[in-house]
Amino acid sequence: MTIRPSVGVSASVKPANEAPANEPVVEAQKLGLAFQTGDGPVQALSDVDLTIGKGEFVSFIGPSGCGKTTLLRVIADLERPTEGTISINGMTPEQAREKRAYGYVFQAAALYPWRTIERNVALPLEIMGLSRSEQQERIRRTLELVNLTGFEKKYPWQLSGGMQQRASIARALAFDADLLLMDEPFGALDEIVRDHLNEQLLKLWARTEKTICFVTHSIPEAVYLSTRIVVMSPRPGRVTDIIESTLPKERPLDIRESPEFLAIAARVRDGLRAGHSYED
C-alpha cells in the first residue's frame, strides 16, 4: 500500500488576490460603510478591495454580521458606502441600478402573493415598459430555464419553497442583466432541495454566462458553486481571504467528496476561524 502525497492537492489551492483576466464588472477600492445607529456608528464594512471579472461566480462567505449582505446591497445601490469607491461596469452603483444592470435575488422569494408566477416574472418587464409579446416570450424562456414551465398560472402559495425561490430567480433573470446578485437565496431551504438548486444554478450559469455574486454561510455551497470565494469576518466587516477555486467548470454533486474540494473547503474554514480568533 502506498501513501499518496498530498502535495498536489495543497499546491492546487493558491492565493488569488490579483485581479482576474476578464474585464471587471465590479471594482471596489477601500470600500467602507458605517451605519448610524442610536448607539453611535456601527462599522458594517471596512477596507474592502475587490474586483470581480465578467463571467465569474463569486461567493461571499462569513458568519452573520460580517457585512456580506451589506456588500451585496452596496453593489445593488440599496446601501450607500461611506468610504472608498465602487463601480459597476464602470458606472456608479446608482447609475448601474438606473440602467438595470443587475438582477437581485433576496433571501426569501419575495414574490407578490397577489400575482401569478408569470405575472411575478413579468413585474420587472412591466416596469421596464416592454411590449406584451416581448414579456410573454421572456416569461416563457426564463420559466423554462428554472424548470417551472406549466406553473405560469399558479399563485405563489400553491408552490413549494424551492419552486418559489426558482420563480424569484426567473424573475431576476427575466430582464436579462449580465450581473446576478444573490443574497442567501437557498438559506431557508432544506438540504436536498438546496443541492438540487445548486446544481441547477451552476447549469444556468454555464448556459447564460452571467456574472454571479452569491452570499452564503454554507462552506460546501460556496466551494461547490464558486470560481472564487471571498471570506469575510465581522465587526468591522472586512475581507480576510480570497480563494481561487481550482475545481473544473463541470461539477457533478459528488465532486464534493474529492480531495480537491475538501482542501478548498478546509482553507475556507481556516479563513473563517482566523476571522473569529481575531475577534476574540
Partner: peptide, 11 residues
C-alpha cells in the same frame, strides 16, 4: 424586501 425589489428595478 418587496420595496427593495422595486428599487432594484428602478421603479
Amino acid at each position: 424586501m418587496h420595496l427593495d425589489l422595486m428599487r432594484t428595478y428602478n421603479a
